[in-house]
Design a protein around this nucleic acid. Structure first.
Lengths: 240, 240
DNA sequence: TCCCATTGGTATTTTTTCATACCGTAGAAG
DNA sequence: CTTCTACGGTATGAAAAAATACCAATGGGA
């Protein structure tokens, strides 16, 4: 039983080599829509600094994404790496395939992790006294999701969820929530965006924001839990 | 405002070089008491595999810990790297120094992060239906803390907290809680272990376990929050 | 007593990653 | 039309890390 705890601490220092990790990171930023279609990534020199890697390694990663069709790289001033990726319009088969591509254990792990960190973040934000500008950010993100065109829905939904974590002011917590979201992106992207689901999600989003603004930690946490449990149950249902 | 979200995703891929990260990881495993005084670390070959680094790099890390007096390395069969570290008996000055060694922002970040993930973990565990052996683990860890000799208190307290995360069955969540704890280890180790504090903590630990076993997520989360808020407030009070 | 499995110690080579400097290009500003 | 400049593109040498193979010591068990 002590070995389990050793496992938590002596887990891998490196998830892979720098190149692979960079490709993964950039790809997720693209799939998450943090850099939307048509927009430009930061310049190689800036990105390399932010990612803490050399420009050479970064270029290799960008090149492989370019060859995979995710980026259009243009030279010269006002050039850069432009995102070509458009979120796919999912059909039913994709979801089953996506779910079963990752192991059942990994799926459960990711869903549990996401539930924990997002509930925790909402709870903390509800405990915090928010200034007017923070409230404004939260409300704006909420209305952006509600007004979203179908093609933009996932992206703005992500932005809404991440904003909650970011507003806590804890970069570690924000990173954890981003990481949790990354692990289910492919699955969420494979779920068709349907009217009734969106309407249901809108009600839940509203409940989350209301609880946070009312300073109700338990309510905020429960609202997030209910919201996430919906998609979690859906995904679990597709396990072979 | 979009730049903040970019920051969460395009954060550093590498925290430092493999050597430094490995030293840090091992040192924290030692300071946390996951491998207690007199015990042996896994063999170099095993460790290198688990940490995902080469044996050469691992050896450099072990060597620097040996030279710093944390390890006693012996060769031959039944040899290995034995932990020499004994938790210090803190005096008042140490705490102020330790608190102000990390920035005020970093302290707030670490405390917020810890609050979120530990509350989330307790909440999830309270939602889960636990089988008898899981209940037994939780109760045993609780009694171990209560019966702990002063020198073992921190170590068993850590074990108790980590067990909650591990019992959720999510390695990601367990790793996040371990990481959160790591970030405040030095601070917690600098807090004198006093009778009244231990008694107070024992009551709170009991409340946490009771809420979890009763299947009360809100109660479990609130109990953890109250428990952590105590030390958090203490630490914040030492900020210069 | 001697063996030998298990452990740390060392040496060598290859691969990855980094740091630095410099080149080529496109587009806006003059 | 020229120039300036912020970009990507390229080259090269050094450093870090990994892979591999092999050496050396220890101590329990045959």
């Amino acid at each position: 039983m002590k070995e389990t705890q050793l496992g938590s601490l002596l887990r891998p220092v490196r998830a892979g080599n720098a190149f692979e990790e960079t490709v993964e990171r950039l790809l997720q930023a693209i799939k998450l829509g943090v850099v939307p279609h048509g927009e430009r990534l930061p310049s190689e020199r800036d990105l390399a600094v932010h990612l803490g890697i050399s420009r050479v390694t970064l270029r290799e990663a960008i090149r492989s994404l370019q060859e995979a069709g995710y980026l259009d790289v243009r030279r010269g001033r006002y050039g850069g790496a432009f995102v070509l990726y458009l979120p796919p319009d999912p059909s039913d088969g994709d979801l089953a395939e996506a779910v079963n591509q990752m192991g059942a254990g990994d799926l459960a792990d990711a869903l549990t992790f996401r539930m924990a960190v997002e509930c925790g973040a909402a709870q903390i934000l509800a405990t915090t006294s928010l200034d007017p500008s923070q409230r404004a950010v939260l409300l704006r993100r909420l209305s952006e999701v509600n007004d979203a065109a179908p093609a933009d829905y996932r992206r703005l939904d992500t932005a809404f969820h991440l904003s909650i974590a970011e507003l806590t002011g804890s970069p570690l917590l924000a990173a954890a929530c981003a990481d949790a979201r990354l692990r289910v992106t492919d699955l969420l992207n494979a779920i068709p965006v349907l009217g009734p689901n969106i309407a249901h999600a809108a009600v839940q989003h509203q409940a989350i924001v209301s609880a946070i603004l009312a300073g109700d930690p338990d309510g905020a946490s429960r609202a997030v839990a209910e919201h996430l449990e919906g998609t979690a149950a859906l995904l679990r249902g597709f396990l072979a």
